[in-house]
């Protein structure tokens, strides 16, 4: 039976984890490579890096992080943030990323998803959707949530599937950082609209939220940052909790 996945996400800036915290046994709280290794040893099903480096001259730092991580972690590694072109995707894959997530570029230029999924296969193309509720629909935002494209999220999700995305990483901007749980309505609506797996993101504050994302939101995978990063819960605890709620997980 296919297991639901738990994916810890690390925000990386200039090659360092943003808001690092000291775990027991962690020598350098800001080192994404070391943190990723701890997550994968702890049973993370995948690792996700989101590069939030603002300046172009420091962009190359993420390539080095990916290179180092892929030599130490033997679970899938997804990398996103600032991915603009097929060349960017190629470079990340060559450094050892297994999947690349595309956000703004997928909205601005549909060719990026079409061309890259043809070139590298759908299995490594994740389209990241930042969605914000407006009335009775959700609109797609770009540029790290700063710009409203006005595009309807459900239509967009379907379009991305047709363009060749292998998975959708759906973040509710209304919930992100609030710790009140995923936008279940959004997740379940997208999940029933498309036939590709969706990864729920944005708003996790406790382990029940992960359960809800899978059971009610029909997500194939759940992504979270702070509950793991701030040491509130380990990956192992999360998996055991999901297991106790009857959700199939890899233990």
């Amino acid at each position: 039976m296919l297991k639901n996945r738990i994916i810890p996400c690390l925000d990386v800036k200039n090659g360092r984890i943003v808001k690092g915290i000291n775990f027991v046994g962690l020598k350098d709280a800001g080192d994404p490579v070391e943190q990723a290794k701890i997550y994968s040893d702890g049973g993370a099903d995948e690792i996700c890096f989101l590069d939030i480096t603002a300046s172009n001259e420091n962009r190359d730092t993420i390539y080095d992080v990916v290179k180092q991580t892929s030599k130490k972690c033997f679970v899938p590694l997804t990398v996103g943030g600032g991915v603009r072109s097929v060349e960017d995707i190629s470079k990340l894959l060559n450094c050892g990323a297994d999947k690349v997530s595309i956000n703004t570029a997928a909205v601005e230029n549909s060719k990026v998803v079409i061309d890259s999924s043809k070139k590298f296969g759908s299995q490594c193309i994740v389209v990241a959707i930042d969605a914000k509720k407006n009335g009775d629909k959700w609109e797609v935002f770009t540029h790290g949530g700063r710009n409203n494209s006005g595009i309807d999220t459900l239509e967009y999700a379907k379009q991305m599937e047709e363009n060749g995305a292998g998975e959708l990483l759906v973040t509710s901007m209304d919930r992100d950082g609030t710790q009140v749980g995923y936008d279940i309505d959004l997740m379940s609506k997208i999940s029933s609209k498309v036939n590709i797996p969706i990864i729920a993101s944005g708003g996790v504050g406790n382990l029940d939220h992960l359960v809800d994302g899978i059971k009610l939101g029909n997500a194939s995978a759940v992504l979270a940052a702070s509950i793991f990063h701030y040491g509130k819960h380990s990956i192992k605890e999360a998996k055991e909790y999901l297991d106790s709620k009857g959700i199939p997980v890899r233990i």
């Binding site: 296919l2 297991k3 099903d45 759908s122 036939n195 590709i196 797996p197 194939s220």
Partner: peptide, 8 residues
Amino acid sequence: KLPHIGWN
């Protein structure tokens, strides 16, 4: 769902 993605 297809692709069949994940741990089985």
